[in-house]
Design a binder for these strands. Structure first.
Length: 153
DNA sequence: GCCAACGTTGGC
DNA sequence: GCCAACGTTGGC
């Protein structure tokens, strides 16, 4: 079982939207980066856990823990000409973009990016690397455990 | 709003 | 296949 970090902009969809969602489940649609898509398609398994990360906001950081509850399947927004995520090169027979579904396990205290950076134990974390833009990144087991402990402090 | 870093596009 | 130009991300 693997661990992940998944970014979302809370102005669009934040942890409180997931708290309020039916069954506290949401589709993780809108990923338009091949590397992030490949993580979902090739590596994510049912039961994998992920940090729900708030990006591009006043206080970027980790806001909760979710669990993958549906394996990768086509993201419908790629077929919708009215959607900002429309991709004219994509067809239902040959979809280019995928999503998974995730279920909320718990909303946690906000662990700010600032705080993550302050811990040498997390120095190698993918999301903290200079220039990182990937919206889905793997999290090492030791990093996962360290951050879960931080959430309780 | 700025800008560094990175991914994608497209001409050649 | 190269690589310059361009668009996007995302912290600050």
């Amino acid at each position: 079982m693997q661990h992940w970090l998944m970014k979302s902009e809370p102005a669009g969809y934040g942890i409180d939207d997931l708290v309020a969602a039916p069954n506290q489940v949401t589709g993780w649609w809108g990923v338009r980066n091949y590397q992030a898509r490949n993580f979902m398609r090739d590596s994510m398994r049912l039961g994998d856990r992920a940090f729900f990360y708030h990006s591009s906001c006043d206080e970027p950081g980790i806001a909760g823990i979710v669990e993958v509850c549906r394996l990768a399947y086509p993201d419908e927004t790629q077929f919708d000409p009215a959607s900002a995520y429309f991709d004219p090169r994509s067809t239902p027979a040959n979809p280019r973009w995928l999503q998974v579904d995730v279920k909320l396990l718990r909303k946690t205290r906000l662990v700010p990016l600032r705080e993550l950076r302050s811990h040498g134990e997390l120095a190698a974390m993918r999301v903290l690397q200079r220039g990182n833009r990937l919206s889905i990144t793997p999290v090492e087991p030791a990093e996962w455990r360290f951050i879960v402990r931080l959430m309780q402090s």
